[in-house]
């Protein structure tokens, strides 16, 4: 099972953490991935200027936004598969 942690600190929130969570929930729901992916929250990772910060398993991904999250999700999700 893969784990995605989204930072819900102040500045990531302002940069769209809430929308990102909603988009991820939607994708997981539509693709019926809830047995494969677990969503969670994290606090500040100390990289606020590069927010939104997301952790895909142990890998930290910066500059995530509601616009690029979908593309980024599929890229990361399919990494191990191909």
């Amino acid at each position: 099972m893969k784990k995605i942690l989204i930072c819900v600190g102040s500045s990531c929130h302002l940069k769209g953490a809430y929308e990102i969570v909603e988009i991820l929930k939607k994708i997981i729901n539509e693709e019926e991935l809830d047995t494969e992916i677990e969503l969670g929250a994290s606090f500040c990772q100390g990289k606020c200027t590069e927010g939104v910060i997301l952790k895909f398993d142990q890998e930290m991904i910066s500059n995530v936004s509601p616009e690029n999250i979908e593309e980024l999700f599929y890229r990361e999700f399919n990494k191990g598969v191909s």
């Binding site: 819900v8 600190g9 102040s10 929130h13 809430y18 969570v21 969670g40 929250a41 994290s42 606090f43």
Partner: peptide, 24 residues
């Protein structure tokens, strides 16, 4: 840390033993 948003404008709260409320 929780991902539960009660209000989109307010980041979620968290839990920590010995503390009554943890917010952003």
């Amino acid at each position: 840390v929780s991902l539960l948003y009660h209000d989109p404008e307010i980041p979620p709260t968290s839990r920590l033993d010995g503390v009554d409320l943890v917010t952003e």
